[in-house]
Simulated scan of single mutants.
Amino acid sequence: MTAVTSEPTAAAEPNGRRVERAPRPTNRRGRPGRPNGARTALYTVLVVLSLLIVLPLLWIFLTSFKSDFDAIKNAAQPFPSPWTLDAYRTLSNGQQPIFRWFLNSLAAGALQTVLILVTASMGAYALARLDFVGKRLVFGAIIATLLVPPVIFLIPNYLIVQQLGWLDTIWAITVPGAAGAFGIFFLRQFFSGLPVELEEAARLDGAGDWRIFLQLVLPLSRPALATLAVLSFLNNWNDFLWPVYVLLSPEHLTLQPGLNVLSGAYSTHFGIVMAGAVIASIPVLVLFTVAQRQIVDSVASAGVKG
């Protein structure tokens, strides 16, 4: 939204006379606003990008209401003809424990998210504020693990889980990824941007490291913690390869490998698969809606220091 400055500007012509010019449009902060053409082009690009993101989701949703025949014959037609709930009825008839997979994924995602927040916040605070021998070396080693492809850890993690007797349990899909380098790096950068004066004032009042960490640093870091929680949950929720290796019983599967079971060896029921995808997207949309404010605050504070 643009506003017009209250005082017009004046300029001198070659003959020495001063000529009043029209005021420049400014935004709410008093800065020059964008021309209408640039604003229109920007909004057009944003609308196109939004459609590119929303249309595949809408296509999945509409296909879930198609019959198998309609999904194959009229694949290019977005709207079902006729509308049917057969796919959702098939998922709810108990032949495939999709709701058990759904609960398994929720439990695994929530547990791993809590573990990541605990380990990453403590490690990040130690690297951001505490002084100890080899601090930079430890931080460099942690960052170096980000350059290693995750698939390299597949066999070592599997052998460890097997030796611990965690195969086909929830611990197998939560504990191995509970101390990731990304979470430590992400929170360490955020903690480093917090004002040191607040912690110094707390120390003058007699607070120790644990009290400062729990009652001062963590409350101030709520946007960063919420962002890391969303990313951690989504990473576990969308994980497909690792659960396939460590979860052996059909009733212990999570939702992503479970949805693969819905595709038969010789045929694919597209309506059922899309209905399962719709169910799988519900927690993601709810989580993002709830944490959207915190995520925006985290991104906005990333460029603010002091």
Score class of each variant (00 low, 15 high):
Pro97Val: 03
Ala275Tyr: 05
Asn74Ile: 01
Gly165Met: 05
Val273Phe: 12
Phe182Ile: 07
Asn74Arg: 10
Trp59Thr: 13
Leu85Lys: 07
Pro250Gln: 13
Gly276Glu: 06
Ala291Trp: 04
Trp237His: 03
Ile116Cys: 10
Leu52Ile: 12
Leu187Gly: 03
Ala181Asp: 05
Gly258Tyr: 00
Leu220Glu: 05
Pro257Ile: 08
Phe132Asp: 01
Ser249Thr: 14
Gln95Leu: 10
Ala265Gln: 15
Ala178Ile: 01
Thr63Phe: 02
Asp168Met: 05
Ala275Ser: 11
Arg31Ser: 10
Phe61Glu: 06
Ala226Asn: 04
Ile160Cys: 01
Trp210Tyr: 11
Val54Ala: 13
Val54Gln: 09
Asp297Cys: 01
Gln77Tyr: 09
Leu62Asn: 12
Leu204Ile: 13
Asn93His: 10
Gly264Val: 02
Ala172Lys: 03
Leu287Gln: 07
Glu199Ile: 09
Ile143Arg: 07
Ala22Phe: 09
Arg293Asn: 06
Ser232Met: 11
Pro195Ser: 03
Trp242Phe: 01
Val48Lys: 06
Ala11Pro: 00
Val196Ala: 14
His252Gly: 10
Leu231Asp: 02
Thr169Pro: 03
Asn104His: 02
Ser50His: 04
Arg21Met: 13
Trp83Met: 12
Thr40Leu: 14
Leu91Asn: 08
Ser232His: 10
Leu194Gly: 07
Gly264Asn: 11
Trp166His: 09
Phe61Ile: 13
Leu225Phe: 04
Gly193Val: 01
Ala110His: 03
Ile116Glu: 04
Tyr88Cys: 11
Glu20Tyr: 08
Leu127Asn: 02
Trp59Arg: 14
Thr174Phe: 03
Pro150Ile: 07
Ala179Gly: 06
Gly94Lys: 08
Thr254Trp: 10
Glu7Asp: 12
Thr254Lys: 02
Arg18Lys: 12
Val114Ser: 06
Met122Glu: 00
Tyr266Leu: 11
Glu13Gln: 13
Ala126Thr: 13
Asp68Trp: 07
Leu154Pro: 07
Gln95Trp: 05
Val148Gly: 05
Leu57Asn: 14
Leu115Phe: 08
Phe186Met: 12
Val290Asp: 07
Phe213Arg: 09
Thr145Met: 11
Ala126Leu: 08
Arg100Val: 13
Ile143Ser: 09
Asp209Ile: 14
Asn236Thr: 13
Ile173Phe: 02
Leu106Pro: 00
Leu204Phe: 09
Thr227Asn: 06
Ile279Arg: 06
Val217Cys: 05
Arg100Leu: 12
Glu251Arg: 13
Ala41Ser: 07
Ala300Phe: 02
Gly303Thr: 08
Pro23Ala: 11
Thr63His: 09
Asp131Ile: 08
Leu154Val: 10
Arg31Pro: 00
Leu85Trp: 15
Ala38Asn: 01
Asp86Glu: 15
Gln162Ala: 14
Asn260Ser: 14
Gly264Gln: 09
Arg18Phe: 13
Gly303Cys: 05
Arg39Val: 10
Ile155Asp: 06
Gln163Lys: 15
Trp210Phe: 14
Thr113Gln: 00
Ala265Ser: 15
Leu58Tyr: 01
Arg136Ser: 13
Ala172Pro: 01
Leu225Met: 13
Leu127Lys: 10
Leu115Ser: 06
Gly258Leu: 06
Asp168Ser: 09
Pro23Ser: 14
Leu194Arg: 08
Lys73Arg: 15
Gly276Asp: 04
Phe132Arg: 01
